[in-house]
Design a protein around this nucleic acid. Structure first.
Lengths: 241, 241
DNA sequence: CGTAGAATTGATTATTATCAATCATCGTGG
DNA sequence: CCACGATGATTGATAATAATCAATTCTACG
Protein backbone atom coordinates (compact mmCIF):
# COMPACT_ATOMS: atom_id res chain seq x y z
CA UNK A 1 0.00 0.00 0.00
CA UNK A 2 1.47 3.36 -1.05
CA UNK A 3 1.46 5.67 1.91
CA UNK A 4 2.74 8.51 -0.23
CA UNK A 5 -0.58 8.60 -2.09
CA UNK A 6 -1.93 12.07 -1.46
CA UNK A 7 -5.51 10.80 -1.48
CA UNK A 8 -4.82 8.92 1.74
CA UNK A 9 -5.11 10.64 5.10
CA UNK A 10 -1.96 12.52 6.00
CA UNK A 11 0.66 10.80 8.06
CA UNK A 12 -0.40 11.74 11.56
CA UNK A 13 2.65 10.13 13.10
CA UNK A 14 4.99 12.86 11.93
CA UNK A 15 3.28 15.46 14.08
CA UNK A 16 2.43 13.06 16.90
CA UNK A 17 2.90 14.45 20.38
CA UNK A 18 4.37 11.18 21.63
CA UNK A 19 6.37 10.44 18.50
CA UNK A 20 9.65 10.17 20.40
CA UNK A 21 8.41 8.34 23.46
CA UNK A 22 5.87 5.77 22.27
CA UNK A 23 6.80 2.32 21.03
CA UNK A 24 7.02 3.60 17.46
CA UNK A 25 9.93 5.92 18.28
CA UNK A 26 12.66 3.79 16.71
CA UNK A 27 10.93 3.23 13.38
CA UNK A 28 12.28 4.95 10.28
CA UNK A 29 10.25 7.05 7.86
CA UNK A 30 9.05 4.16 5.69
CA UNK A 31 8.11 2.00 8.63
CA UNK A 32 6.22 4.85 10.25
CA UNK A 33 4.41 5.36 6.99
CA UNK A 34 3.33 1.74 6.99
CA UNK A 35 2.29 1.82 10.63
CA UNK A 36 0.39 5.04 9.98
CA UNK A 37 -1.56 3.29 7.23
CA UNK A 38 -2.93 0.62 9.58
CA UNK A 39 -3.70 2.91 12.53
CA UNK A 40 -6.16 5.71 13.03
CA UNK A 41 -6.61 8.47 15.53
CA UNK A 42 -9.57 8.45 17.81
CA UNK A 43 -10.92 10.69 20.50
CA UNK A 44 -12.44 9.16 23.61
CA UNK A 45 -14.64 11.08 26.00
CA UNK A 46 -14.24 10.88 29.76
CA UNK A 47 -16.11 7.83 31.00
CA UNK A 48 -16.14 6.17 27.59
CA UNK A 49 -14.94 2.58 27.57
CA UNK A 50 -12.52 1.30 24.94
CA UNK A 51 -11.94 -2.32 25.95
CA UNK A 52 -14.07 -4.77 27.92
CA UNK A 53 -12.75 -7.44 30.25
CA UNK A 54 -13.34 -10.88 28.76
CA UNK A 55 -14.14 -9.58 25.28
CA UNK A 56 -12.31 -10.54 22.14
CA UNK A 57 -9.10 -8.52 22.01
CA UNK A 58 -9.81 -6.61 18.81
CA UNK A 59 -7.94 -3.37 19.43
CA UNK A 60 -4.64 -2.11 20.75
CA UNK A 61 -3.64 1.54 21.01
CA UNK A 62 -1.13 4.18 21.96
CA UNK A 63 -2.15 6.95 24.31
CA UNK A 64 -1.44 10.35 22.82
CA UNK A 65 -3.24 12.57 25.28
CA UNK A 66 -5.28 12.06 28.44
CA UNK A 67 -5.42 9.39 31.12
CA UNK A 68 -7.17 6.02 31.02
CA UNK A 69 -7.77 3.37 33.65
CA UNK A 70 -7.21 -0.37 33.35
CA UNK A 71 -9.62 -2.13 35.65
CA UNK A 72 -11.16 -5.36 36.75
CA UNK A 73 -13.90 -6.24 39.18
CA UNK A 74 -14.55 -8.96 41.73
CA UNK A 75 -17.54 -11.23 41.44
CA UNK A 76 -19.01 -9.07 44.23
CA UNK A 77 -18.88 -6.03 41.97
CA UNK A 78 -15.99 -4.27 43.72
CA UNK A 79 -13.68 -2.57 41.27
CA UNK A 80 -9.90 -2.51 41.36
CA UNK A 81 -7.98 -0.19 39.08
CA UNK A 82 -5.00 -2.19 37.80
CA UNK A 83 -3.11 0.64 36.23
CA UNK A 84 -3.32 4.09 34.68
CA UNK A 85 -2.24 4.82 31.13
CA UNK A 86 -0.70 8.22 30.40
CA UNK A 87 0.51 9.71 27.10
CA UNK A 88 2.96 7.43 25.24
CA UNK A 89 1.71 4.36 27.14
CA UNK A 90 0.51 1.35 25.22
CA UNK A 91 -2.98 -0.12 25.66
CA UNK A 92 -4.35 -3.57 24.98
CA UNK A 93 -2.95 -7.05 24.77
CA UNK A 94 -1.04 -8.10 21.67
CA UNK A 95 -0.83 -11.81 20.82
CA UNK A 96 -3.82 -12.84 22.88
CA UNK A 97 -7.44 -13.54 22.05
CA UNK A 98 -9.22 -11.92 24.96
CA UNK A 99 -8.83 -8.81 27.09
CA UNK A 100 -8.06 -9.61 30.69
CA UNK A 101 -9.20 -6.18 31.86
CA UNK A 102 -11.30 -3.24 30.83
CA UNK A 103 -10.03 0.16 29.69
CA UNK A 104 -11.91 3.42 30.13
CA UNK A 105 -10.95 7.06 29.71
CA UNK A 106 -10.83 9.11 32.92
CA UNK A 107 -10.57 12.42 31.08
CA UNK A 108 -11.04 13.26 27.40
CA UNK A 109 -8.31 11.34 25.61
CA UNK A 110 -6.68 11.05 22.24
CA UNK A 111 -5.42 7.66 21.16
CA UNK A 112 -3.97 5.97 18.13
CA UNK A 113 -5.76 2.64 17.59
CA UNK A 114 -4.90 -0.45 15.59
CA UNK A 115 -6.72 -3.65 14.91
CA UNK A 116 -4.81 -6.14 16.99
CA UNK A 117 -4.46 -8.52 14.05
CA UNK A 118 -2.81 -5.77 11.99
CA UNK A 119 -0.64 -4.68 14.87
CA UNK A 120 0.46 -8.22 15.72
CA UNK A 121 1.49 -8.81 12.12
CA UNK A 122 3.34 -5.51 11.89
CA UNK A 123 5.09 -6.16 15.21
CA UNK A 124 6.28 -9.63 14.20
CA UNK A 125 7.73 -8.16 11.03
CA UNK A 126 9.46 -5.27 12.80
CA UNK A 127 11.74 -6.36 15.62
CA UNK A 128 12.57 -2.75 16.46
CA UNK A 129 8.94 -2.19 17.39
CA UNK A 130 8.77 -5.45 19.33
CA UNK A 131 11.86 -4.44 21.22
CA UNK A 132 10.33 -1.12 22.26
CA UNK A 133 7.16 -2.89 23.25
CA UNK A 134 9.19 -5.35 25.30
CA UNK A 135 11.03 -2.55 27.10
CA UNK A 136 7.74 -0.82 27.83
CA UNK A 137 6.10 -4.02 29.03
CA UNK A 138 9.02 -4.77 31.33
CA UNK A 139 8.80 -1.26 32.79
CA UNK A 140 5.07 -1.60 33.25
CA UNK A 141 5.61 -4.91 35.04
CA UNK A 142 8.10 -3.19 37.37
CA UNK A 143 5.62 -0.43 38.07
CA UNK A 144 2.79 -2.91 38.65
CA UNK A 145 4.90 -4.89 41.09
CA UNK A 146 5.77 -1.76 43.01
CA UNK A 147 2.04 -1.16 43.25
CA UNK A 148 1.57 -4.64 44.73
CA UNK A 149 3.75 -3.63 47.66
CA UNK A 150 1.43 -0.68 48.17
CA UNK A 151 -1.73 -2.80 47.99
CA UNK A 152 -0.42 -5.60 50.16
CA UNK A 153 1.56 -3.86 52.83
CA UNK A 154 0.69 -0.17 53.15
CA UNK A 155 -1.96 1.46 55.30
CA UNK A 156 -4.39 4.06 54.03
CA UNK A 157 -2.12 7.02 54.78
CA UNK A 158 0.88 5.48 53.04
CA UNK A 159 -1.24 4.55 50.06
CA UNK A 160 -2.60 8.04 49.51
CA UNK A 161 0.80 9.69 49.98
CA UNK A 162 2.30 7.29 47.42
CA UNK A 163 -0.53 7.94 45.02
CA UNK A 164 -0.16 11.70 45.19
CA UNK A 165 3.58 11.56 44.63
CA UNK A 166 3.31 9.20 41.69
CA UNK A 167 0.50 11.21 40.14
CA UNK A 168 2.52 14.41 40.42
CA UNK A 169 5.42 12.69 38.72
CA UNK A 170 3.39 11.13 35.94
CA UNK A 171 1.50 14.32 35.27
CA UNK A 172 4.68 16.34 34.88
CA UNK A 173 5.22 17.10 31.19
CA UNK A 174 7.52 14.49 29.69
CA UNK A 175 9.94 17.15 28.50
CA UNK A 176 11.05 18.36 31.89
CA UNK A 177 12.95 15.91 34.01
CA UNK A 178 10.58 16.49 36.94
CA UNK A 179 12.66 16.97 40.03
CA UNK A 180 10.41 17.97 42.90
CA UNK A 181 12.32 21.02 44.06
CA UNK A 182 10.64 21.36 47.40
CA UNK A 183 8.45 24.15 46.10
CA UNK A 184 4.70 23.65 45.93
CA UNK A 185 3.15 22.05 42.87
CA UNK A 186 -0.44 22.12 41.78
CA UNK A 187 -1.92 19.05 40.14
CA UNK A 188 -5.27 18.42 38.57
CA UNK A 189 -6.26 14.92 39.60
CA UNK A 190 -7.52 12.86 36.68
CA UNK A 191 -9.51 10.70 39.12
CA UNK A 192 -12.53 11.15 41.35
CA UNK A 193 -12.34 10.14 45.01
CA UNK A 194 -14.06 6.86 44.20
CA UNK A 195 -11.54 6.14 41.46
CA UNK A 196 -8.65 6.92 43.79
CA UNK A 197 -10.22 4.46 46.24
CA UNK A 198 -10.37 1.90 43.43
CA UNK A 199 -6.68 2.43 42.71
CA UNK A 200 -5.65 2.09 46.33
CA UNK A 201 -7.91 -0.75 47.35
CA UNK A 202 -9.80 1.44 49.87
CA UNK A 203 -13.28 2.90 50.22
CA UNK A 204 -14.16 6.44 49.20
CA UNK A 205 -14.73 7.38 52.84
CA UNK A 206 -11.27 6.29 53.89
CA UNK A 207 -9.70 8.21 51.01
CA UNK A 208 -11.68 11.29 51.89
CA UNK A 209 -10.61 11.14 55.52
CA UNK A 210 -6.98 10.82 54.53
CA UNK A 211 -7.27 13.85 52.23
CA UNK A 212 -8.78 15.85 55.04
CA UNK A 213 -6.04 14.86 57.42
CA UNK A 214 -3.24 15.70 55.02
CA UNK A 215 -4.78 19.09 54.42
CA UNK A 216 -5.16 19.71 58.15
CA UNK A 217 -1.52 18.72 58.62
CA UNK A 218 -0.41 21.18 55.96
CA UNK A 219 1.03 18.61 53.54
CA UNK A 220 -1.36 19.53 50.76
CA UNK A 221 -3.90 22.15 49.88
CA UNK A 222 -7.24 21.31 48.30
CA UNK A 223 -8.74 24.11 46.21
CA UNK A 224 -11.34 22.10 44.32
CA UNK A 225 -12.32 18.44 44.22
CA UNK A 226 -9.60 17.67 41.73
CA UNK A 227 -7.31 20.58 42.40
CA UNK A 228 -4.59 19.61 44.84
CA UNK A 229 -1.38 21.41 45.64
CA UNK A 230 1.50 19.55 47.19
CA UNK A 231 2.98 21.84 49.83
CA UNK A 232 5.46 19.66 51.68
CA UNK A 233 7.21 17.04 49.57
CA UNK A 234 9.43 15.74 52.33
CA UNK A 235 6.59 15.25 54.76
CA UNK A 236 4.51 13.57 52.08
CA UNK A 237 7.40 11.32 51.21
CA UNK A 238 7.88 10.49 54.87
CA UNK A 239 4.28 9.31 55.02
CA UNK A 240 4.87 6.70 52.33
CA UNK A 241 6.95 4.75 54.83
CA UNK B 1 32.96 -19.49 19.27
CA UNK B 2 32.61 -23.10 18.17
CA UNK B 3 30.04 -24.86 20.26
CA UNK B 4 30.72 -28.14 18.51
CA UNK B 5 34.16 -28.26 20.13
CA UNK B 6 34.11 -31.40 22.22
CA UNK B 7 36.36 -29.80 24.84
CA UNK B 8 33.56 -27.40 25.77
CA UNK B 9 30.86 -28.39 28.23
CA UNK B 10 28.10 -30.35 26.56
CA UNK B 11 25.07 -28.54 25.30
CA UNK B 12 22.76 -28.73 28.29
CA UNK B 13 19.89 -27.15 26.41
CA UNK B 14 19.21 -30.25 24.36
CA UNK B 15 18.23 -32.24 27.41
CA UNK B 16 16.68 -29.29 29.25
CA UNK B 17 13.44 -30.06 31.06
CA UNK B 18 11.89 -26.77 29.98
CA UNK B 19 13.32 -26.80 26.46
CA UNK B 20 9.92 -26.52 24.84
CA UNK B 21 8.35 -24.06 27.22
CA UNK B 22 11.00 -21.52 28.14
CA UNK B 23 11.79 -18.45 26.06
CA UNK B 24 14.43 -20.37 24.10
CA UNK B 25 11.86 -22.77 22.65
CA UNK B 26 11.74 -21.23 19.17
CA UNK B 27 15.48 -21.12 18.59
CA UNK B 28 17.03 -23.50 16.08
CA UNK B 29 19.98 -25.80 16.74
CA UNK B 30 22.70 -23.26 15.97
CA UNK B 31 21.08 -20.52 18.00
CA UNK B 32 20.59 -22.84 20.94
CA UNK B 33 24.23 -23.76 20.70
CA UNK B 34 25.21 -20.12 20.88
CA UNK B 35 22.87 -19.43 23.79
CA UNK B 36 24.19 -22.52 25.53
CA UNK B 37 27.70 -21.12 25.26
CA UNK B 38 26.87 -17.95 27.19
CA UNK B 39 24.72 -19.57 29.89
CA UNK B 40 25.47 -21.99 32.65
CA UNK B 41 23.46 -24.19 34.94
CA UNK B 42 23.33 -23.49 38.59
CA UNK B 43 21.76 -25.05 41.61
CA UNK B 44 20.26 -22.84 44.31
CA UNK B 45 19.43 -24.08 47.78
CA UNK B 46 16.18 -23.26 49.52
CA UNK B 47 16.55 -19.86 51.17
CA UNK B 48 19.48 -18.84 48.99
CA UNK B 49 19.13 -15.45 47.35
CA UNK B 50 19.96 -14.90 43.68
CA UNK B 51 19.14 -11.22 43.11
CA UNK B 52 19.03 -8.27 45.50
CA UNK B 53 16.62 -5.36 45.24
CA UNK B 54 18.48 -2.21 44.25
CA UNK B 55 21.64 -4.04 43.20
CA UNK B 56 23.21 -3.83 39.77
CA UNK B 57 21.27 -6.14 37.49
CA UNK B 58 24.08 -8.53 36.60
CA UNK B 59 22.18 -11.76 36.04
CA UNK B 60 19.10 -13.08 34.34
CA UNK B 61 17.97 -16.68 34.35
CA UNK B 62 15.47 -19.34 33.34
CA UNK B 63 13.92 -21.52 35.99
CA UNK B 64 14.40 -25.20 35.19
CA UNK B 65 13.26 -26.75 38.42
CA UNK B 66 11.93 -25.49 41.76
CA UNK B 67 10.08 -22.39 42.89
CA UNK B 68 11.51 -18.94 43.64
CA UNK B 69 9.97 -15.81 45.10
CA UNK B 70 10.24 -12.25 43.80
CA UNK B 71 9.95 -9.89 46.72
CA UNK B 72 10.24 -6.38 47.99
CA UNK B 73 9.95 -4.83 51.41
CA UNK B 74 8.51 -1.65 52.84
CA UNK B 75 10.69 0.81 54.71
CA UNK B 76 9.10 -0.63 57.84
CA UNK B 77 10.55 -4.04 57.04
CA UNK B 78 7.30 -5.73 56.01
CA UNK B 79 7.80 -8.05 53.06
CA UNK B 80 5.53 -8.47 50.08
CA UNK B 81 6.04 -11.33 47.67
CA UNK B 82 5.53 -9.89 44.18
CA UNK B 83 5.44 -13.13 42.30
CA UNK B 84 6.48 -16.76 42.22
CA UNK B 85 8.66 -18.22 39.49
CA UNK B 86 8.04 -21.82 38.44
CA UNK B 87 9.87 -23.99 35.88
CA UNK B 88 10.16 -22.32 32.45
CA UNK B 89 9.63 -18.86 33.97
CA UNK B 90 12.16 -16.13 33.31
CA UNK B 91 13.97 -14.28 36.12
CA UNK B 92 15.65 -10.90 36.20
CA UNK B 93 15.31 -7.68 34.32
CA UNK B 94 16.81 -7.39 30.85
CA UNK B 95 17.73 -3.94 29.53
CA UNK B 96 17.91 -2.27 32.92
CA UNK B 97 20.74 -1.39 35.25
CA UNK B 98 19.27 -2.28 38.63
CA UNK B 99 17.03 -4.96 40.06
CA UNK B 100 13.75 -3.62 41.30
CA UNK B 101 13.14 -6.65 43.51
CA UNK B 102 14.93 -9.52 45.18
CA UNK B 103 14.79 -13.17 44.12
CA UNK B 104 15.21 -16.09 46.48
CA UNK B 105 14.67 -19.84 46.13
CA UNK B 106 11.82 -21.27 48.22
CA UNK B 107 12.84 -24.87 47.58
CA UNK B 108 16.00 -26.30 46.05
CA UNK B 109 16.05 -25.00 42.50
CA UNK B 110 17.83 -25.49 39.23
CA UNK B 111 18.30 -22.48 36.98
CA UNK B 112 20.06 -21.52 33.81
CA UNK B 113 21.85 -18.20 34.35
CA UNK B 114 23.26 -15.60 31.97
CA UNK B 115 25.15 -12.41 32.48
CA UNK B 116 22.60 -9.79 31.65
CA UNK B 117 25.00 -8.04 29.27
CA UNK B 118 25.45 -11.25 27.29
CA UNK B 119 21.77 -12.00 27.35
CA UNK B 120 20.76 -8.50 26.28
CA UNK B 121 23.13 -8.67 23.33
CA UNK B 122 21.93 -12.11 22.31
CA UNK B 123 18.29 -11.05 22.63
CA UNK B 124 18.73 -7.96 20.48
CA UNK B 125 20.32 -10.11 17.80
CA UNK B 126 17.62 -12.78 17.92
CA UNK B 127 14.11 -11.41 17.45
CA UNK B 128 12.62 -14.86 17.90
CA UNK B 129 13.91 -14.89 21.47
CA UNK B 130 12.76 -11.34 22.10
CA UNK B 131 9.34 -12.28 20.83
CA UNK B 132 9.08 -15.20 23.25
CA UNK B 133 10.28 -12.99 26.05
CA UNK B 134 7.68 -10.40 25.12
CA UNK B 135 4.89 -12.99 25.15
CA UNK B 136 6.06 -14.23 28.52
CA UNK B 137 6.34 -10.73 29.95
CA UNK B 138 2.86 -9.85 28.72
CA UNK B 139 1.47 -13.01 30.36
CA UNK B 140 3.30 -12.24 33.57
CA UNK B 141 1.86 -8.72 33.54
CA UNK B 142 -1.63 -10.20 33.13
CA UNK B 143 -1.02 -12.55 36.04
CA UNK B 144 0.38 -9.76 38.21
CA UNK B 145 -2.62 -7.57 37.50
CA UNK B 146 -4.98 -10.37 38.44
CA UNK B 147 -3.05 -10.56 41.71
CA UNK B 148 -3.66 -6.84 42.28
CA UNK B 149 -7.39 -7.51 42.35
CA UNK B 150 -6.73 -10.09 45.04
CA UNK B 151 -4.56 -7.77 47.11
CA UNK B 152 -6.79 -4.75 46.76
CA UNK B 153 -10.28 -6.16 46.97
CA UNK B 154 -10.37 -9.61 48.53
CA UNK B 155 -10.73 -10.58 52.16
CA UNK B 156 -8.52 -13.15 53.88
CA UNK B 157 -10.73 -16.12 53.01
CA UNK B 158 -10.94 -15.20 49.33
CA UNK B 159 -7.21 -14.62 49.21
CA UNK B 160 -6.28 -18.01 50.63
CA UNK B 161 -8.80 -19.86 48.45
CA UNK B 162 -7.39 -18.11 45.37
CA UNK B 163 -3.86 -18.92 46.44
CA UNK B 164 -4.56 -22.62 46.92
CA UNK B 165 -6.26 -22.92 43.55
CA UNK B 166 -3.52 -21.09 41.70
CA UNK B 167 -0.81 -23.09 43.47
CA UNK B 168 -2.50 -26.37 42.56
CA UNK B 169 -2.65 -25.26 38.95
CA UNK B 170 0.92 -24.04 38.77
CA UNK B 171 2.28 -27.11 40.49
CA UNK B 172 0.56 -29.47 38.06
CA UNK B 173 3.16 -30.91 35.69
CA UNK B 174 3.26 -28.88 32.49
CA UNK B 175 2.59 -31.96 30.41
CA UNK B 176 -0.90 -32.66 31.64
CA UNK B 177 -3.52 -30.08 30.82
CA UNK B 178 -4.58 -29.84 34.48
CA UNK B 179 -8.33 -29.94 34.61
CA UNK B 180 -9.44 -30.16 38.22
CA UNK B 181 -11.79 -33.12 37.85
CA UNK B 182 -13.54 -32.70 41.14
CA UNK B 183 -11.47 -35.45 42.72
CA UNK B 184 -9.11 -34.64 45.56
CA UNK B 185 -5.59 -33.47 44.81
CA UNK B 186 -2.62 -33.41 47.09
CA UNK B 187 -0.15 -30.56 46.82
CA UNK B 188 3.13 -29.89 48.54
CA UNK B 189 3.20 -26.19 49.29
CA UNK B 190 6.49 -24.58 48.33
CA UNK B 191 5.88 -21.83 50.91
CA UNK B 192 5.79 -21.58 54.68
CA UNK B 193 2.81 -19.98 56.41
CA UNK B 194 4.76 -16.74 56.75
CA UNK B 195 5.59 -16.76 53.05
CA UNK B 196 1.96 -17.38 52.16
CA UNK B 197 1.12 -14.39 54.34
CA UNK B 198 3.71 -12.37 52.43
CA UNK B 199 2.12 -13.37 49.14
CA UNK B 200 -1.40 -12.49 50.26
CA UNK B 201 -0.66 -9.29 52.17
CA UNK B 202 -1.78 -10.81 55.48
CA UNK B 203 -0.18 -11.86 58.77
CA UNK B 204 0.81 -15.41 59.57
CA UNK B 205 -1.90 -15.65 62.23
CA UNK B 206 -4.64 -14.71 59.81
CA UNK B 207 -3.40 -17.25 57.26
CA UNK B 208 -3.26 -19.95 59.93
CA UNK B 209 -6.80 -19.25 61.08
CA UNK B 210 -8.08 -19.44 57.50
CA UNK B 211 -6.34 -22.79 57.00
CA UNK B 212 -7.91 -24.10 60.17
CA UNK B 213 -11.33 -22.94 59.08
CA UNK B 214 -11.09 -24.47 55.62
CA UNK B 215 -10.03 -27.77 57.14
CA UNK B 216 -12.90 -27.66 59.64
CA UNK B 217 -15.30 -26.94 56.79
CA UNK B 218 -14.00 -29.93 54.83
CA UNK B 219 -12.66 -27.99 51.85
CA UNK B 220 -9.11 -29.16 52.40
CA UNK B 221 -7.16 -31.66 54.44
CA UNK B 222 -3.87 -30.79 56.11
CA UNK B 223 -1.57 -33.78 56.65
CA UNK B 224 1.66 -31.90 57.32
CA UNK B 225 2.61 -28.24 57.43
CA UNK B 226 3.15 -28.18 53.70
CA UNK B 227 1.02 -31.12 52.72
CA UNK B 228 -2.44 -29.99 51.71
CA UNK B 229 -5.13 -31.91 49.88
CA UNK B 230 -7.88 -30.10 48.09
CA UNK B 231 -11.09 -32.01 48.78
CA UNK B 232 -13.82 -29.77 47.42
CA UNK B 233 -12.88 -27.72 44.36
CA UNK B 234 -16.28 -26.17 43.86
CA UNK B 235 -16.56 -25.00 47.43
CA UNK B 236 -13.02 -23.62 47.31
CA UNK B 237 -13.78 -21.84 44.08
CA UNK B 238 -16.94 -20.42 45.59
CA UNK B 239 -14.86 -18.90 48.38
CA UNK B 240 -12.80 -16.87 45.93
CA UNK B 241 -15.84 -14.72 45.29
C1' DC C 1 13.89 -37.78 73.60
C1' DG C 2 14.74 -32.99 73.70
C1' DT C 3 14.85 -28.76 71.42
C1' DA C 4 14.27 -24.97 68.24
C1' DG C 5 11.64 -23.06 64.87
C1' DA C 6 7.12 -23.01 62.92
C1' DA C 7 2.37 -23.01 63.48
C1' DT C 8 -1.77 -22.59 66.01
C1' DT C 9 -4.89 -20.59 69.19
C1' DG C 10 -6.76 -17.03 72.23
C1' DA C 11 -7.53 -12.23 73.87
C1' DT C 12 -7.39 -7.63 72.70
C1' DT C 13 -6.62 -3.59 69.82
C1' DA C 14 -6.34 -0.97 65.62
C1' DT C 15 -7.74 -0.02 61.22
C1' DT C 16 -10.84 0.22 57.75
C1' DA C 17 -15.52 -0.85 56.00
C1' DT C 18 -20.18 0.07 56.31
C1' DC C 19 -24.24 2.66 57.08
C1' DA C 20 -26.29 7.10 57.37
C1' DA C 21 -26.57 11.91 57.11
C1' DT C 22 -25.02 16.38 55.68
C1' DC C 23 -22.45 19.40 52.88
C1' DA C 24 -20.06 21.17 48.47
C1' DT C 25 -19.58 21.80 43.78
C1' DC C 26 -20.77 22.17 39.25
C1' DG C 27 -23.76 22.38 35.49
C1' DT C 28 -28.31 23.89 33.99
C1' DG C 29 -32.20 26.42 33.12
C1' DG C 30 -35.26 30.00 34.63
C1' DC D 1 -26.81 35.88 37.14
C1' DC D 2 -28.65 33.22 40.58
C1' DA D 3 -31.32 29.38 42.36
C1' DC D 4 -31.81 24.65 42.09
C1' DG D 5 -30.93 19.97 41.66
C1' DA D 6 -27.93 16.16 41.09
C1' DT D 7 -23.84 14.11 41.86
C1' DG D 8 -19.79 13.76 44.44
C1' DA D 9 -17.46 14.46 48.76
C1' DT D 10 -17.18 14.84 53.59
C1' DT D 11 -18.20 13.69 58.24
C1' DG D 12 -19.94 10.91 62.05
C1' DA D 13 -21.30 6.59 64.42
C1' DT D 14 -20.89 1.81 64.52
C1' DA D 15 -19.50 -2.81 62.93
C1' DA D 16 -16.44 -6.03 60.84
C1' DT D 17 -12.06 -7.62 59.75
C1' DA D 18 -7.49 -8.33 60.38
C1' DA D 19 -3.36 -6.95 63.16
C1' DT D 20 -1.00 -7.32 67.28
C1' DC D 21 0.42 -9.32 71.52
C1' DA D 22 0.91 -13.46 74.13
C1' DA D 23 0.86 -18.26 75.12
C1' DT D 24 0.83 -22.90 73.88
C1' DT D 25 1.33 -26.68 70.85
C1' DC D 26 3.22 -29.09 66.93
C1' DT D 27 6.79 -31.34 64.34
C1' DA D 28 10.96 -31.98 62.13
C1' DC D 29 15.62 -33.15 63.24
C1' DG D 30 19.66 -33.90 65.60
Amino acid sequence: MDTQDSSRPVNFCQACAVRNRAICADLDKDEIGLLNSIGRRRRIEAGEQLLWEGDDAVLVANVIEGVLKLFSETAGGKEQILGLAYPSDFLGRPFKETNSYGVEALVPAEICVFYRADFDRFAREHPKLEHRLLERTLSELDRTRRWMLLLGRMNAEQKLASFLLETAERLAPASCGFVPDGGSRRIELPLSRQQIADVLGLTIETVSRQFTRMKKDGLIDIAGRRDVTILDWDALNARTQ
